[in-house]
Design a protein around this nucleic acid. Structure first.
Length: 106
DNA sequence: TACTTGACGGATT
DNA sequence: GAATCCGCCAAGT
């Protein structure tokens, strides 16, 4: 395969449907490296903006977001707002309800 | 070219 | 239940 792990991650993230979310670990798993979750995060932090990847749909395993790092906005509330606009459900904890909105990779 | 750091996550202590 | 360790790949220095 002449495609890098990185390219697979970009492709997968770009396929996350609106109203669903994926976790770093899930993307890493689908990309072929179940333990490379941190790599996914690292890639998201350096992903070319030109690809227009919906990075805001990628969250932690427990549904929380990266505090201090938001997508397209200066405050973390922006990412939550974006997801809510897409129909993603949030729990009372202020986290994404991944039990209901987790993308299954289809 | 080599080393270090980094949006994570699961297992272990 | 909380804290720590290890593993993975890419990008920056």
């Amino acid at each position: 395969m002449d495609v890098s792990f990185r390219d697979r991650v970009y492709d997968l993230v770009g396929r996350i449907p609106s109203g669903s979310v994926a976790t770093y670990g899930l993307v890493a798993f689908l990309a072929g490296n179940p333990r490379a979750s941190r790599i996914v995060g690292s890639l998201m932090a350096h992903v070319p903006e030109g690809l227009g990847l919906p990075c805001h749909r990628v969250v932690y395993r427990d549904g929380s977001l990266c505090k201090g790092f938001s997508f397209g906005g200066a405050d973390e509330g922006y990412q939550r707002w974006l997801l809510e606009q897409e129909g993603v459900v949030f729990s009372v904890d202020g986290k994404v309800d991944i039990a209901r909105c987790l993308w299954d990779g289809s």
